[in-house]
Design a protein around this nucleic acid. Structure first.
Lengths: 250, 250
DNA sequence: CTCTCGCACACTGTATACCAAGTACAGGAC
DNA sequence: GTCCTGTACTTGGTATACAGTGTGCGAGAG
């Protein structure tokens, strides 16, 4: 057990934060699967910390939508429904478009630089071949992209959404599927950034639309429970218009 | 002190939730003003509960954006900047429009009913003359309106935003300003719902635009620190186009 | 054999006490 | 007047205890 408490306490990230990171990673990696109960006692033993920090971490994860809190029953990894996937994907598109609308009239050099930095991170990961890291880095890039708008609340919301989308991908991974080509993946993001930096809303939003859809989810999404009228309709449209759309998501 | 622990335990809302409600109310009423430190010990004494529930409540409020948590310094009521107000108002419009786009093609009777219910609540409040309750009820109505889309993540985000907007209004109240006419206020919301129920996006979004802007904030927003390029530009546009726009917000 | 009731266990929600570490402020030295 | 230092206050974390509730299992009835 542990390693958590062994990190130097002086470098201030609280144990609750560290615990949250660890659990989050466990969820996104697939160590903890959707529906699995996460009892406080178990996590205490696993991470070597006492209950209060664990409770705090679980709250934080609940806010990110990665775990669900049931009143006297504790927490479990959020079991996503088809409707959830619909919500996540539609929210994503909406937030990205809103950000572009806000950002394009006045692209700030420092914010653009942040995008380039995230792109550099991705390039460095290509060599390592670390697929999980590439996925995470891809999301960081998208967050930086949304950050172009300088709208912290939108960025926060996007961040939460990204976590949940990663959870979707984690479920997908279990159903066998990986990023086929790391370098190609980076190139796609490079192209997207270039399109955004033209400053043309039309160009940027088109690039965004073609960049990646929920298409990669199509295989798994049918197996999920919790279909609703909305989710079914969305899925139908996605299938109808999905020809020629790349299979990547991040 | 107290009354909190005296509520029957059997009806299960946890002490943390109750504490959060109480503190939230204290903030929105103006008992606790922006920037004020909220020490755990003080709140324990005030609410008659121990530290763990208080800490949990503060976390929850931090997530709603009503308090700010500083690493070793504790929590304080969020001191809003001009940029924050800009973000809140723009996010609001965006979320409401998104909801309408999603909802109008297929208005569900049960969700519409919920809007009517909230409207009824407002009507009942007219007689009591309780201004604070009217403000809260107004927000509940708007949340129900957003709920027409059946998109829980958008609704959640809207809810958080609404809390922060109420915080803005609380600041405003201190600078003297109240709802002039409760019945008129209800009527405005009645009209808005009617416009939405036409099912015409154009009609609905126009009604939304005219329903209430950040206009009521114009007096206070200048006194706030933290102006940015974005917030200044927004404010300018608001002033330019603001003629004839009602002064209400909720 | 199946269904239901009830009981024991497991876990959360809360309280309490306590320690370590960091921040802020006041007072003194230069 | 400025800088430094020590002290008080507060948070972050641990340990422990306990009550109440949900869960699952087993025994007994039909």
């Amino acid at each position: 057990m542990t390693t958590l408490a062994t990190r130097k306490l002086s470098e201030t990230p609280s144990l609750a934060v560290l615990a949250a990171e660890r659990i989050e990673r466990g969820i996104l990696i697939g160590d903890y699967v959707p529906g699995q109960r996460l009892t406080e006692e178990f996590l205490c033993a696993e991470l070597g910390v006492s209950r209060p920090p664990i409770r705090e971490a679980l709250q934080s994860l609940a806010r990110m939508g990665l775990v669900e809190h049931q009143p006297r029953r504790g927490a479990r990894v959020t079991p996503l429904t088809q409707h959830d996937v619909y919500e996540i994907v539609t929210l994503r598109k909406e937030l990205e478009l809103m950000s572009l609308r806000l950002a394009l009239p006045d692209l700030r050099p420092d914010r653009v630089q942040r995008c380039h930095d995230r792109l550099s991170d991705m390039e460095m990961i290509v060599d390592t071949g670390d697929e999980a890291a590439m996925i995470a880095a891809g999301f960081d890039f998208h967050i930086a992209l949304v950050g172009l708008a300088g709208h912290s609340r939108v960025e926060d919301t996007y961040h939460r959404m990204a976590m949940q989308l990663q959870l979707c991908m984690a479920m997908n991974n279990q159903a066998r599927r990986t990023i086929e080509d790391l370098e190609g993946n980076v190139q796609r993001h490079r192209d997207l950034l270039a399109a955004v930096l033209t400053g043309e809303l039309e160009v940027a939003s088109t690039a965004l639309r073609n960049h990646g859809d929920g298409t990669f989810l199509l295989e798994v999404v049918d197996t999920l429970p919790g279909a609703t009228t909305e989710s079914r309709e969305w899925l139908q449209q996605l299938r109808a218009g999905g020809a020629g759309v790349p299979l990547q998501t991040t």
